[in-house]
Design a protein around this nucleic acid. Structure first.
Lengths: 361, 361
DNA sequence: CTGAAAGCGCTTACAG
DNA sequence: CTGAAAGCGCTTACAG
């Protein structure tokens, strides 16, 4: 963190906008309403509503008068009121782990694009991997009556959502399935991807391979571990106790885990990293070593190809996850009510160098 | 883009949640309201409101009866209705360029944290650097009556916001100032940072230095160019026509610009990249060269230290930008109405290797 | 073509 | 301690 000094000064120049407001009144007191427009145009409320919404049945002359009043008053329809009456808020909620994790950037963007195509706004927030915070955020979004919810779950028990789903809040889980309820989910093939990645290391001669993953509470972490174990078993390789480490993705924890696996009499010659946060830290650890250790990471990341060696990854298509999930959400929103489905997107192994070096090279 | 095949199947197992809904009615018809709770508990509406909001003046016995009805009915207060009456939506809008740009991750996250501390939700969207889309999004947020707005502007004329600001929508611009209106702004010292970065290259012996930046419509692009010119001028160095290129940050455009500057009889020996998108592309271009070319980039980015050579950058504190801006927003929201201010956060030069090699090394 | 009345689900201001 | 009435700013259903 930078230790910053802040220089603040009035902007000056240009016209100054007044921020005056009487805090005792609701803010809307300051804004013209349809009633004000109607009064000024000398028409009824409903006529203003017709003009604002482009409904037919207004003579050009009347329409013009209303439009003039709208412009003169600077009227902007209050969508909160509209929403209350119509029952649809034209907004969806997105709950993810951390807005700052680069993996979620393309995913969020894809969700936004689909929502935008349907005329909906995006309300979002981070759970910070805290189940309580996830729940709090999800229920706050339900209280705002979002039409639908895209959730990357932090917790493993989502029964608290049942009344909401029953009340009509379309909900799609992404990246990880819901816990203890049956709901739509869109995820990557974590098991298959990890198995492929580990098999790739085995193909290149490795027999002692370590696995460092996310917290075991997280579905993708255990699925990827399962893929690792499957690949090892298929090759007839044992998995020593010290070769598997699940936990926080904090750099300190990952560094310690990697260091431990690389020490001792029988160190691993290759590592499989369970997600992009882990991979980045492992890359740092390996960069400090004098001997090469092979690495395959789950998740692609920017610049992976420019590191030396390039980092071999199991890539998932984060944008597709977001797109497919949001498409499904809007399918539900527009009436379809099939039973919940589980959609699994394939991963792709991208060899770049770090995963192709033989042991002891 | 991956060409994906999607495997979809019913989830099965677990209890199945019904999604039934009569589309002709408003969704709220399905949810219990305070009126329903009042009827069931045999009390007045206001008493339910008191319990829901934890207001005093309810006997324990009455409170218990109301709470039972709330639980039995699965009541959740409709915040849309509350908002309509109270005049505050407890939500703020964040408009940025691209949710997927890693620079905005920490910024968004900081905005969210501050908003959360004030009990507000975040509604956000991307302008995709399109002024029309920015305007459309901002006005949609105003129609939803967000309490405040954090805007990373794409356009250069924000007079369309004047009526909104006057009506009480607190607005703070971040990263770039507002165009043609006087509003709060929080930004990094682009001029000083670029000047420092270019001076750093000059210190290491470079005399022919190229500048590749973002579109000249964008304030930070021109400020950084100004910093470049200042550093060159202070060192008594000329700036040849071909050494400056502003435009899209699309890889093709940046690659072409860099390639052109590196060709010809008098090629540049060093490049200054105007932002992280440009830097990443320039790194790719330089990686393909046989001779070293020095590079300093504006914006730090993950893994910059792990590239060979490490990439020297002028770092700005994106999280601090978001935090300071949102703090200011809530200051306005809680009554303070000082004239708009301009806050400039310092940058920090981080030498990592790419900016310290002499010409022709 | 036009508009008065009722209502969306809450809170406010007030009376008992 | 408790609740009936009015109202937030719109849309719906209906009548003229």
């Amino acid at each position: 963190m930078l230790n910053i000094t802040i220089a603040t000064r009035p902007t000056g120049g240009l016209r100054t906008v007044s921020y005056s407001r009487r805090p005792s009144e609701p803010r809307y007191g300051l804004r013209p309403t349809m009633k004000d427009v109607a009064a000024r145009a000398g028409v009824g409320l409903k006529t203003v509503s017709r003009v604002v919404n482009g409904e037919p049945g207004v003579t050009p002359e009347t329409g013009r008068r209303v439009q003039e009043a709208i412009d003169a008053l600077g009227f902007r329809r209050n969508d909160s009121a509209r929403v209350l009456r119509k029952g649809r808020t034209a907004s969806i909620g997105l709950v993810l782990e951390d807005l700052a994790d680069p993996f979620y950037g393309p995913l969020s963007r894809a969700v936004e694009e689909v929502a935008r195509a349907h005329g909906a706004l995006l309300i979002n927030g981070s759970s910070a991997e805290d189940p309580d915070r996830e729940r709090e955020l999800v229920l706050a979004l339900c209280a705002r009556r979002v039409d639908g919810l895209i959730v990357i779950p932090a917790g493993d028990d989502h029964r608290y959502l049942e009344p909401e789903i029953r009340a009509g809040v379309a909900t799609v889980f992404v990246d990880r399935p819901a816990g203890r309820i049956d709901a739509d989910v869109v995820l990557s093939d974590s098991f298959g991807g990890a198995r492929d990645g580990v098999a790739h290391l085995i193909t290149h001669g490795h027999r002692r391979i370590g696995f460092i993953g996310d917290h075991p509470r997280i579905h993708t972490a255990t699925e990827r571990l399962r893929g690792y174990r499957a690949a090892m078993a298929e090759a007839g390789l044992p998995v020593a106790d010290g070769w598997v480490s699940l936990g926080s993705t904090a750099p300190e924890r990952v560094t310690a885990a990697a260091t431990a696996m690389l020490a001792g009499p029988e160190p691993v010659t290759a590592l499989f990293a369970g997600n992009n946060r882990v991979t980045v830290t492992v890359v740092r650890v390996l960069a400090a070593l004098t001997h090469p250790v092979a690495l395959v990471g789950f998740d692609d990341f920017e610049l992976a190809d420019l590191l030396r060696p390039g980092v071999t990854v199991v890539a998932q298509d984060a944008a597709a996850l977001g797109r497919v999930a949001t498409d499904r959400l809007f399918q539900r929103l527009t009436g379809a009510a099939p039973p919940p489905t589980r959609t699994e997107l394939p991963t792709r192994l991208i060899p770049r160098g770090s995963g192709e070096s033989p042991p002891g090279a």
